[in-house]
Computed example of a mutant assay.
Amino acid sequence: MGRYSVKRYKTKRRTRDLDLIHSDLSTEESIQSLKHQPQDETKPGLGQYYCIHCAKYFLDNKALGAHLKGKVHKRRVKNLSKLPYTQLEAEAAAGTNLNKYIEKVNEYQQKEPARLELEKQLLSTQLEENDQKDSLAQQEFAGEMAVE
């Protein structure tokens, strides 16, 4: 096997595609379900510290906060601010379904400001909510240790 055939199949650093993440950010329920995931021992930080834009788990709230201030995260948020490429857009470029595409773009332009505001509102409190969850978990752990 040549060098290029091996490079093509490496998936170690592969992240979720932008269209999948855009669908995660489309509704309030999906954002809330990703912010408040059940604890999972197989994920870093028990799956409690998750960046929805980058689809990454972190060990603690401090690491998540550092990530949210970083260049990689900001670049990803900027890429997610655009409408993802769809099959409908490809068909419109070829000259078919042009009217349907124009309707979809107009609908997107009307709904997008409200969606962005909702996303900003829900994700602005993520670090504070994680801090509260951590303090509650510490109190429960201290209570269990005092009982023993």
Rank of each mutant, 00 (worst) to 15 (best):
Q37P: 05
Q37E: 13
L34Q: 14
Q39S: 14
Y57M: 03
E28V: 11
E29M: 02
H53W: 02
K43G: 02
H36E: 07
S30G: 00
A55Q: 11
L46V: 03
Q32N: 06
Q32I: 15
Q48N: 12
K35W: 05
L25T: 04
Y49W: 07
Q32M: 15
E41G: 12
Q32W: 10
C54P: 03
Q48I: 03
Y57R: 12
S33T: 13
E29K: 07
H53F: 07
K56W: 09
Q39N: 10
L46R: 05
T27Q: 10
D24K: 09
H53G: 05
E41L: 12
S30W: 08
E28D: 08
D24H: 14
I31H: 02
T42R: 13
D24T: 00
C51K: 02
S26T: 04
L46Y: 09
E29V: 04
A55G: 08
L25F: 08
T42P: 07
Q48F: 06
E29F: 09
T27K: 09
Y49D: 01
Y49T: 07
P44E: 10
K43I: 06
S26M: 02
A55Y: 05
D40P: 00
H36W: 12
G47L: 00
A55N: 15
Q48M: 09
K56G: 10
G45D: 04
L34D: 08
D24F: 12
I52R: 00
C51D: 08
A55H: 11
A55C: 11
C51P: 04
T42A: 02
S33G: 09
Y49Q: 09
G47H: 01
E41M: 12
E41F: 09
Q32E: 14
E41P: 09
L34W: 06
Q48R: 05
H36D: 15
E28Y: 03
I52H: 11
E29A: 14
D24S: 04
H36T: 10
P38C: 13
E41S: 14
T27S: 15
L34S: 13
E28G: 06
E28H: 02
E28M: 12
S33H: 14
D24G: 07
Y49L: 07
G45K: 03
K43T: 06
A55L: 00
S30M: 06
E29S: 15
L46C: 04
T27Y: 05
C51Q: 02
D24A: 10
I31E: 09
Q37N: 08
E29W: 07
T27E: 06
I31S: 03
L25P: 08
L46W: 03
E29Y: 12
